[in-house]
C-alpha cells in the first residue's frame, strides 16, 4: 500500500475544506438550522407527535441524513472532477498509486467531511430540540456507511461529469428529490397506501429509516432491511467504481 500517497491526497482534500470553510461547513449548518426553524418550530408546532417523538425531534435524523447525502456527493464529485477539469489529474494517473488507494483517499476525505458536517448538525439540532440517541453504535455505523456510500456515488458522478452542469445535475435532479421524498420530513405511514408502496422504491427511505431507528427505536422499515439495503448500495457503488478504474472510463484514453 502506498500510504504516503493516501495521506497526501487525504490531506490535500481536507486542506481544501479548510480553505472553503464557509462553503463546506458553515453553509450546511445554516441551511439545516433554517429547516429546524421553519419545519421544527413554525410548522412542527402544529403537527402532533409521531409515535412518541415530537415532530422537531423526528426531523433530526432526516435533516442529518439530508445534509450527509448532499455533502458526501458534492464533496467527492468535486474532489475528483476538479483535477480532471484543471488537468492536474495527470499527476495522479502517472503516480504509483493503485485504484483502491486513490478511491480510499478521495472517498475517505469526502466521507470524513460529511461525517463532520453531520456531527455539527447533530450538535446544532440540540440547540433547537431535545432528542436522544437510543443506539449510538448503530447511529455511527449508519452515519459512516451512508457517507461512504454516497461519497462513492459522488466519486462516480465526478468521473462521469464532463462539465460543471452535469456535476450538479444528479445531486439536484435525483439526490435532493429522493431525499425530500425519502422519509426525511415525515413517516411513510402518513402517506396513502399507494404512495407508501412507491416510497419503498426510494433507496433513501431505507437509509433515513435505519438512521432514525438508531435515535428513537422507531422505523418505517425493519432495521435489518435498512442495513442490508445500505450495504447493497455500498456494494453497487464499489462495483461501479471498480469498473471505472478497470476500463479507465473518462480517466485514460
Amino acid at each position: 500500500m502506498n500510504w504516503y500517497a493516501i495521506r497526501a491526497i487525504y490531506h490535500f482534500e481536507m486542506a481544501r475544506t479548510r480553505r472553503t470553510l464557509l462553503q463546506s461547513i458553515v453553509s450546511p449548518v445554516i441551511s439545516t438550522s433554517l429547516y429546524f426553524v421553519v419545519f421544527g418550530a413554525a410548522i412542527g408546532s402544529r403537527i402532533p407527535q409521531i409515535g412518541e417523538v415530537s415532530y422537531g425531534a423526528f426531523l433530526v435524523p432526516g435533516l442529518i441524513m439530508l445534509s450527509l447525502l448532499t455533502q458526501s456527493v458534492s464533496n467527492a464529485s468535486f474532489g475528483i472532477y476538479f483535477p480532471r477539469f484543471s488537468g492536474t489529474i495527470y499527476e495522479l494517473l502517472s503516480a504509483p498509486v493503485s485504484y483502491f488507494e486513490a478511491v480510499l483517499a478521495y472517498v475517505g476525505a469526502a466521507a470524513t467531511k460529511s461525517v463532520i458536517v453531520g456531527l455539527i448538525i447533530l450538535a446544532t439540532a440540540a440547540l433547537f430540540v431535545p432528542f436522544s440517541i437510543a443506539h449510538p453504535f448503530w447511529m455511527i455505523l449508519f452515519l459512516l456507511l451512508t457517507s461512504v456510500t454516497f461519497s462513492l456515488i459522488g466519486f462516480i458522478i465526478g468521473i462521469w461529469a464532463d462539465n460543471f452542469e452535469k456535476l450538479q445535475l444528479v445531486p439536484l435532479l435525483i439526490i435532493t428529490p429522493l431525499t425530500f421524498l425519502g422519509d426525511s420530513f415525515y413517516s411513510i405511514d402518513m402517506l396513502p397506501p399507494f404512495w407508501q408502496t412507491v416510497s419503498l422504491f426510494n433507496p433513501v427511505v431505507y437509509l433515513v429509516s435505519g438512521f432514525r431507528w438508531s435515535f428513537y427505536g422507531i422505523a418505517d422499515v425493519g432495521v435489518a432491511v435498512s442495513l442490508v439495503m445500505t450495504l447493497l448500495f455500498l456494494a453497487v457503488a464499489m462495483a461501479v467504481v471498480a469498473w471505472i478504474f478497470k476500463t479507465g472510463y473518462r480517466l485514460k484514453n
Binding site: N2, Y4, A5, R7, A8, I9, H11, F12, A15, E91, L92, A95, P96, V97
Partner: peptide, 15 residues
C-alpha cells in the same frame, strides 16, 4: 495551494 504544499503533495503521491 501553496508552492511548498503542492511540491510536498507530489512527493507523497509518489510514495
Amino acid at each position: 495551494e501553496s508552492v511548498w504544499g503542492t511540491v510536498s503533495f507530489s512527493r507523497g503521491l509518489f510514495g
